[in-house]
Design a protein around this nucleic acid. Sequence first.
DNA 1: CTCATCTCTTTACGGCATAAAGATACAGGG
DNA 2: CCCTGTATCTTTATGCCGTAAAGAGATGAG
Lengths: 260, 260
Amino acid sequence: MVVFAAQGDARRSMALLWRGTDPEPVRPGPRPALSVDAIVDTAIEVADAEGMAALSMRAVGERLGRTAMALYTYVPSKSELVDLMYDRAFTELGEPYDLSEGWRAAVTAWAWDLWAFFVRHPWVLQVSQARPVLGPHEYTFLENLVTIVRETGLPASRLRRLVSTLVHFVRGSAQTASDTRRAPDATGMSDDEWWYARSAELETVAPDFAQRFPALTEMESHGAFELDDESVPYLEQEAREAFTYGLEVLLDGVDARLRT
Amino acid sequence: MVVFAAQGDARRSMALLWRGTDPEPVRPGPRPALSVDAIVDTAIEVADAEGMAALSMRAVGERLGRTAMALYTYVPSKSELVDLMYDRAFTELGEPYDLSEGWRAAVTAWAWDLWAFFVRHPWVLQVSQARPVLGPHEYTFLENLVTIVRETGLPASRLRRLVSTLVHFVRGSAQTASDTRRAPDATGMSDDEWWYARSAELETVAPDFAQRFPALTEMESHGAFELDDESVPYLEQEAREAFTYGLEVLLDGVDARLRT
DNA sequence: CTCATCTCTTTACGGCATAAAGATACAGGG
DNA sequence: CCCTGTATCTTTATGCCGTAAAGAGATGAG
């Protein structure tokens, strides 16, 4: 299920997100063996490896040699932990883009980086966008995109819509791609096994498929994609091709509108 | 978390999805008071009203005046129930589109219908696309789209990518829009309250925001959207505008490529 | 040494999906 | 008519989850 972000106490939440690097003052009590950073990093490891569904306070604690409850000393709740994970992950997209080849090349590079990021960290796609986390690294990531697209010279209102369109398109595409990649592990069944069982069943249960869905049948039976690389599963390459195509169409559309 | 679809036994799963309307033969044992349809409909009501997170076997059972375990007589598991909900919801998108105004008008109508569908049934966005449910109504919905876009005359391989691009774009946009709409209820805080608390905190925690994120600051401070309709929240109208714009850009791109 | 404060563990609660066992209802066969 | 096999539905129990509450033990300041 979608994990709602930014629900907690605004002051504590923002302080954690924007906390600087200066060390905590020494205080009475046992010296902390953990840290917010260690917890967030470990939680990201768990979520990367086993998915958001397997991310539990117990699992993170265990990986750190502590109980689940020990984490609550550092982090107010699981929901805040997810916020911190989210913003921390965006650190990977912190570098600005080269604009010397023009905005189009830079947007393309940005889009692929974001796509790869989502596939690397599929759980990020499950953090709701409704109440943005508002952390420094997500802002940096957005700043990078805005810096690119303002080169088009579009007015601010158009720019906002373009930014949102780009982010949504990449999000949507990456969601399928990352689900595809995770499916064999998550379900314990390979793509082939799965497809074989289902399609055999489909034929017995809907023998009139080709008559009921003629356009779909025709589309699916032509122009199958050719594998360049045997090691990457078919479905993933298909997703990648579709992403390439969609991105080009989108940018062609932006170009076409700039010229009129 | 993403609910993985189509995990169960293929035979039983497909039989449930494609089951016809012919009544069950009369068998010994107490007459069933429930039915798969009643359970699926009730589950959709729960998910629509309270979100996927609140969808539990207990909740559905209770609404039907039964225990959670009673549902297992009709449905093998929660995951299969979600598959059935998913395909059943797509019944709403079963009507073919009018092609007399050309493919572009039809795609636009299709996209808005899908967008509205996702906003009406936000939980649909949480069903993984990796292992498609393969039910009759989702196929009908896809058949409708393919029937429209094949009017462009593009070859099958392009068609597949275009279909995927369109679905992803709508999915991505609708996700933000539906999260936005659900946020106040889900978090018990209005958009205004939330934004007020966070932005005040942001100023104290990052006083140098405008220097750190100049492009973003400039974009956000210009060309704010004007509300046409006071009753629809600002964020939702913004999402709608961005969707309109993105869809037009995308279709302009398709057009531009058709002409060369 | 005392005390206040902090870390971390233990225990407990109410929620979840669902396995297992049993109570009850009913059609068909005698 | 009862008997039997099959079906529905409930009860109970198991092992997960987030996290509240209470307390054990460590440590710096006085």
